[in-house]
Design a protein around this nucleic acid. Structure first.
Lengths: 461, 461
DNA sequence: GTCTATATATCGATAGAC
DNA sequence: GTCTATCGATATATAGAC
């Protein structure tokens, strides 16, 4: 509960099936030699089925796919688990239904946007904001699907699930490409990597409910994001050379350099010898691959190349493994963040240094950041391995907000939005997984981050 | 229990895997992108695993695949159901393991037999008996596999299961072909359809535990079967024309002709109108396809083209459906059998007439005969829908035995074996599903039955 | 190799709305 | 009379932890 940042968004009745068998042409009719149970329950279109859909969406959104059980869904509906199978053939089918509904809506949006964008690229920025707002609003209406496709992709790797998640709307891609490219025309000149700008906008807007609180009005918030990326957070264009030499940045570089080794002593474990480290590394890899819930200790043992008995000699429990991993991670982040904040530097220099720190962290700790993104859905959130991490994250976020507020008041930060919202945007962009996009190098990613976030991706009029 | 005709046979430890992965070449090693749970548990070769195998075999043999639960197996072993999955990845895998073991052994036997048979076909009959004895003995050692492949084939139609069952040893086929064809050489002349003779021997021997009591010594019993098929049950070669005109045969034909319609009133059902008959016909078809246990009422409703509510308005329960089907069936059989036995005819004429009756019944009631072959494994066997049928069957069997005893004493029946055993052979051959073999017509099947069973498939020396 | 707990799913059967 | 939604029981299977 404490881990869940947002309250639930209301998903309106999701539109239904993209493809439906015409009656009388049922492939399961006739005399099949074997029974085909998969085609048994068509995705019915009834009010009650929609209740199920909405309830499941709410729970999936809160807790993710693995941690949401059919019993949870049934209980929320006030029926028995078996009764759910009257409405959906399987748990997977519910998820696929939700995801398909989202991707279908995205495609529609893309098609409509393409029509709208083509004719008059006279006001490129306005068109970009419109697209961002539309996508973000849609993402909010399909918050469960967003969560399922963002986090659970590899965890439930059945064919249908993967296919539903892997779907990309070519029309929407084209709309984004057109909107961003049109920045290069007219009165503005692009100063930042437009490929990464497009990636950033596409990622953040289509995953809006993961980053923005549910009460954020999608169009306004996404408009602020565009403003920041295109024109920067800072009131005055800084000199990056000067910033590089600042005390805060030097502190950041110094702290980051300590992350190089993963051989920190592992608290909570018996001893930290080679074999234990192997297990820890394997656990980190596996947890990152499909989340804590969906990873079994047998997966970890196999990945580490040890037997179950060996694993349990080295490790207290599955939970303690997660704790070790997260503690190291949280420690590194806190250390670097603290070093930056306690350096004798200006607000601008600190923002620059934080860009360096988190730009590096999202790459260096890409496994850890993925693990925590799955969340924690055990019984007592207060004693969970990720609880301390979430608390520390919140504290850093508050400090960042204070920093931006101070900058806003001092005039060094442009008052695009309230400081807290600025912090949200700053964080969401910094944590994007640029390394997963077109083999983007860290240097390229950092160049984009500092240019767009601080100075702006386009030169000012 | 009362339904189970035979006591359990002791399966000696089944020999294990035909193909085994060499260690160190495990395909599941390395870093698969998705988890492959199916390859998780190799079919281990440990003493305990073999306990599991044997216990499962015993229960499968007694109750069949569907009616044997993992809990049953676990309970018999004194462990909890979940613990079974340490030994086998699934229930299906146990069955496939058992079946593969049998088919592997059959192939070995076929290869060895081919070597043995080829060189000297001087004594064809002896070679045939040897092959029959070897196959029957092997079938007894794999009684569970025999039952699984004979009855459960379409009921559990997963790919692996079907593949395991569908496997036929070309080597063994060849051995049978050679052995039977060599009857046409030397001093004997074939008088019956050798193709059907081969089918008969192959079927009965490879399913020996289904037909013969567990205490029957495989080689001796199968020797008697060969004797009967090659030289006939009767001491004197009869004239089929005379037998055709006998009162018993006329009674048989008369009784059989009444079977033509399936519109008997259906006891146990509310009313017997068209819809109910459709349901009944669908149930018969579905039960025959995969057995009572594995057929769901949803299968039946779908096959009948009605909804569940309609079905339950017409039909009291799944069990009552079975009862209706079996009752009609049992009535027809009893009527025909009684007509033959009460006719004013000789033993020989009666045997001939019974050949006619059952030769026709196994075709006309092929669905019903298949349904009862699955058996009944509910709680109280005494009140089961098939109980009356089994009792009547046993009574007919006793009457048949008495008939053969009388004939033996009177000298009209050759004393190949004890009358009871003769009845077993007579029954096993009469109920073979000739119509499933190479589109054999009823006329051809009957010609073969009367020739081989009564006169002998080869002319006497 | 086994236990404990629990997940997903199936199935026979029924109640009640329309 | 037919269909929708549900129950209650139980099956197969997985997972954490010895």
């Amino acid at each position: 509960m404490a881990a869940s940042v947002r309250a639930s968004a209301q998903n309106p009745p999701a539109r239904n099936p993209p493809a439906q068998n015409p009656p009388g042409q049922n492939p399961a009719a006739g005399n099949p030699p074997a029974r085909d149970r998969s085609a048994q329950q068509p995705p019915a279109v009834s009010a009650r089925t929609d209740d199920v859909r909405r309830t499941a969406a709410r729970l999936f959104e809160q807790s993710g796919y693995s941690a949401t059980t059919m019993s949870d869904i049934a209980e929320a509906l006030g029926i028995l688990p078996g009764s759910l199978y009257h409405h959906f053939a399987s748990k997977e089918e519910i998820a696929v239904d939700l995801i398909s509904s989202y991707t279908g809506a995205l495609t529609e949006l893309g098609t409509a946007a393409a029509r709208r964008t083509e004719p008059s690229p006279a006001e490129p920025e306005k068109l970009l904001r419109q697209l961002a707002a539309d996508v973000a609003a849609l993402a909010f209406r399909h918050a469960a699907a967003v969560r399922l496709s963002a986090y659970e992709a590899p965890s439930v790797s059945t064919e249908r699930f993967t296919a539903a998640i892997g779907f990309r709307s070519a029309a929407l891609d084209r709309a984004w490409r057109t909107a961003v490219q049109s920045l290069a025309t007219g009165g503005t000149h692009p100063a930042a990597d437009l490929g990464l700008l497009r990636f950033t906008l596409q990622q953040v807007t289509s995953h809006a409910p993961l980053y923005y609180p549910a009460d954020a009005r999608g169009d306004e918030t996404s408009g602020h994001l565009c403003d920041i990326l295109l024109h920067g957070l800072l009131a005055e264009a800084p000199s990056f050379d000067d910033l590089d030499r600042s005390a805060a940045h030097q502190a950041a570089l110094d702290a980051i350099s300590h992350w190089g080794s993963r051989d920190h002593p592992a608290p909570g474990l018996a001893g930290a010898d080679g074999a234990t480290d192997d297990i820890l590394a394997a656990a980190r890899r596996e947890f990152a691959r499909r989340g804590y819930e969906a990873t079994t200790i047998r997966d970890i043992a196999r990945a580490a190349g040890v037997g179950m008995a060996t694993l349990y000699r080295r490790v207290e429990s599955k939970e303690s493994l997660l704790r070790s991993i997260i503690d190291v991670y949280a420690g590194c982040l806190d250390e670097a963040f603290g070093a930056v904040m306690s350096a004798d530097s200006s607000d601008t220099e600190r923002l620059y240094a934080l860009t360096r720190v988190f730009g590096h962290a999202s790459r260096h700790f890409h496994e850890e950041s993925r693990i925590v993104s799955f969340g924690w859905f055990g019984r007592e959130a207060a004693s969970s391995p990720v609880h301390d991490y979430f608390v520390a994250t919140q504290q850093r976020f508050d400090v960042m907000t204070a920093l931006l507020r101070h900058g806003t008041r001092a005039g060094s930060v442009r008052p695009v939005a309230a400081p807290r919202e600025l912090a949200v945007h700053f964080r969401s962009v910094l944590w994007l997984r640029f390394h997963e996009h077109a083999r983007t190098s860290e240097a390229r990613a950092f160049a984009f981050l500092r240019q767009s976030l601080l100075q702006g991706a386009v030169t000012r009029p």
